[in-house]
Design a protein around this nucleic acid. Structure first.
Length: 281
DNA sequence: ATTGGGACCTGCTCGC
DNA sequence: TGCGAGCAGGTCCCAA
């Protein structure tokens, strides 16, 4: 569910709430299998023990991962999978459905993590280790960052015979794009998602580069996309608004905003892609 | 090495 | 009303 703009919105919401505050307790009720911890952790209890008392000194984002930087030198990493939500929990409320974890802060307040589909994961890395093996860090460039010039996108597409859409979904090519924003960026760049990546010309790559950055920036401003099934919520458990600005995603059969041709879909790399068959070539 | 397909989960909608 | 099929924002693992 959550792609870069959704994760970034949650980060911005939660940062002022958690920065500088210590973790009082982490609870994984009551079936710890409802949340995948990093495999090498023997138990949820051991995981929680490592976190207790640690101070959160920063909250960062890398691709679709949230990184709680701790004063111990460790980093608590949260990936929301398809259906994860991480939000400020109000104690007056009844416990939310599909609650998988609670992070209580020492000065009061708590974060709730819910996830019906259980694809989300928590990781705990030492700072030294985080750059190695395991992986959230084996990601491609941040598309909104300084190290993502158009040439970097060109390098990512170079030599890849897979469809453009498949490469955009590859987190090693560019970090943070998912099904929604890949489709929306390809529409804005007027590129057919089925095009072989290595056959996209330089001018088209520049248009795609611009489109990726524009759509992600606009989606962050709109606080993310809460699509038809309503899965995503921000750090305060509220919906986003970018669904109102989607041009092709979940608009099958509706007129293309540019040429009125009905939007169609195709299965690419195992995912449904939405595009205009006339103006995306 | 790259690519595509299935697996992992649950909930919801649709058609019969 | 009930039930199975199909689908959903992501990633990993495996075989070709």
């Amino acid at each position: 569910m959550p792609e870069l703009p959704e994760v970034e919105t949650i980060r911005r919401d939660l940062l002022p709430l958690v920065k500088g505050r210590a973790i009082a307790a982490v609870e994984f009720p009551p079936d710890p299998r409802g949340l995948r911890l990093l495999r090498r952790y023997p138990s949820a209890a051991a995981f929680a023990r490592r976190l207790r008392g640690r101070r959160i000194i920063d909250l960062r984002r890398r691709g679709k991962y949230l990184l709680f930087v701790l004063d111990s030198g460790e980093v608590l990493i949260v990936h929301l999978g398809m259906s994860g939500r991480l939000f400020l929990s109000r104690p007056s409320d009844a416990p939310p459905a599909h609650l998988r974890a609670v992070v209580r802060l020492r000065t009061g307040g708590a974060l709730a993590y819910t996830d019906p589909r259980k694809f989300g994961e928590f990781y705990l890395f030492s700072a030294a280790r985080k750059e190695t093996a395991v992986n959230p860090f084996l990601l491609g460039p941040e598309p909104l960052g300084k190290d993502f010039p158009a040439g970097r996108l060109r390098g990512a597409l170079d030599g890849r015979r897979a469809p453009l859409k498949a490469v955009l979904l590859d987190q090693k090519a560019v970090a943070g794009l998912g099904n929604i924003y890949s489709d929306e960026a390809l529409f804005r760049a007027r590129l057919d998602p089925r095009r072989r990546a290595d056959r996209v010309r330089a001018g088209e790559i520049r248009a795609l580069h611009r489109a990726i950055r524009a759509v992600l920036s606009e989606a962050i401003r709109a606080r993310g996309t809460t699509a038809e099934d309503g899965g995503y919520r921000d750090g305060f458990d509220r919906a986003g608004s970018f669904q109102l600005r989607l041009r092709v995603y979940q608009r099958k059969g509706r007129p293309c905003p540019r040429c009125r041709t009905p939007i169609r879909t195709a299965r690419i790399a195992g995912r449904t892609s939405h595009f205009c068959p006339k103006c995306q070539t």
